[in-house]
Design a protein around this nucleic acid. Structure first.
Lengths: 233, 233
DNA sequence: CTTACAGTTCGATGATAGTCGAACATTCAC
DNA sequence: GTGAATGTTCGACTATCATCGAACTGTAAG
């Protein structure tokens, strides 16, 4: 027989830095340690210490891809516990209107390390699957014959990126949406190209990106994607 | 838009002494400060400090009767948050045989704030679903026409409890069974009635409850529930 | 091989906060 | 009134732990 130990879990959540990381992960994505360190505004050493404790405590799960360590919430129950805690937490006054704007922008489109994520990232990946440019293979995506032509036409040289030892096109799981977006070398190459042809541009001071008018038209013409006009000016 | 402050609440729960007090109060009763101090094995001064912080943080409510100060959980939401945290907490090894006995009793039947939980609570809820007395609706339960008759016959007046602002019949995740049991106003009313007709009685000194012989027969006759004979003497 | 980068481990430091002794406030019993 | 019991406030001590600098282990890139 065993009695659960609520103190350990609660004290893990009850730290400013760790809570900041958990709130980031509550979106559902798995994030590398460095990004979580940045989110919590602490040094990598401190973040590493916190992450190890949360894995030990059963709050987080860790997956290693190359030299990166991706962390995600260990289970749906953890996410629910965080939400429930939020529901009884006394509201904290907003610091600024800018924060709200930034939050919207982040949900819409952002970079996840070096590839595109958010609503745009997920929609893009979904459309590529729908048009059979790519196909799901285990935990990765594979490029179809169809897709090879498309990527070439789009300006992404598959030969260049197939050579590296990095994962070719990893699936990046999004919990809240329960959908994947494309990561890995191909995801990075596509995102790089999106910046190159200026369909997207970085919003200074964060991970958020903005879809340009060019991008709106391009996504529509090349892939049949209709994006809401939020943050596209 | 206000961002809730999860850190404060979690750090309040994440202390050994405070958690011990909260676990006591999870039984649903209001307790005086001295008793909570005893439960947490700290001096009255220390307990007073903790209690003040938890009231300030919105976890507890205080009522003064003469020279006594009674403390209780501030709301059903707080109780649910505690139960949810329990469900993700890693099991802690038991220290003594007595704890093992208490743990068994807790797993079998206990009060969760003001409604019945544990194996009995989950089985009761399951059976009500099976007999279509209630039905799942989102994260709540709804009473069917069938059920309305049954509850009335059982001695629970649905009109009385439907009026309040409180959730009518919330689904509450059970940490020991990892399944849902019925909470909210209806759960409280049913449990209150169970005490009234003495199908269950409190085991002194904790949250655990005991199913009486009357209760055993009643559960069998009224709902077709066969409970193991544990703790029913 | 060399350089760069991601992440961890170790050790020292500093601040937060839990704890209790002492004293005070309040209420009840006599 | 006096005395006892409940509970709180104040101050000091102490232990825990978050934090960061420095050094180290891998992995990727050229």
């Amino acid at each position: 027989m065993a009695t659960p130990n609520i103190v350990e879990v609660a004290s893990l959540i009850g730290d400013t830095s760790r809570a900041a990381m958990l709130m980031c992960l509550l979106g559902g994505k798995a994030l590398p340690a460095s990004e979580l360190a940045r989110a919590a505004r602490v040094t990598p050493q401190t973040a590493s210490s916190h992450l190890a404790k949360m894995v030990e405590g059963g709050l987080l799960a860790q997956e290693a891809y190359g030299r990166y360590r991706y962390y995600r919430l260990a289970s749906a129950e953890v996410a629910q516990a965080l939400e429930t805690l939020n529901s009884i937490a006394p509201p904290k006054p907003v610091r600024s209107l800018r924060e709200s704007e930034q939050s919207k922008a982040l949900h819409f489109a952002r970079t996840c390390y070096d590839h595109i994520a958010g609503e745009v990232g997920v929609t893009l990946t979904d459309k590529m699957l729908e048009l059979t440019l790519i196909a799901e293979v285990d935990r990765d995506f594979a490029v179809t014959d169809n897709g090879a032509k498309w990527f070439s036409n789009f300006g992404v040289n598959l030969n260049d990126i197939g050579r590296g030892r990095r994962h070719f096109a990893r699936q990046c799981l999004d919990w809240s949406e329960r959908r994947h977006h494309m990561a890995g070398a191909l995801g990075a190459a596509v995102t790089c190209r999106l910046f190159e042809i200026e369909w997207i541009v970085r919003i200074p001071g964060g991970r958020a990106v903005r879809v340009t008018h060019n991008g709106l038209r391009g996504f529509k013409q090349e892939l049949g994607i209709s994006l809401a006009s939020i943050n596209t000016t």
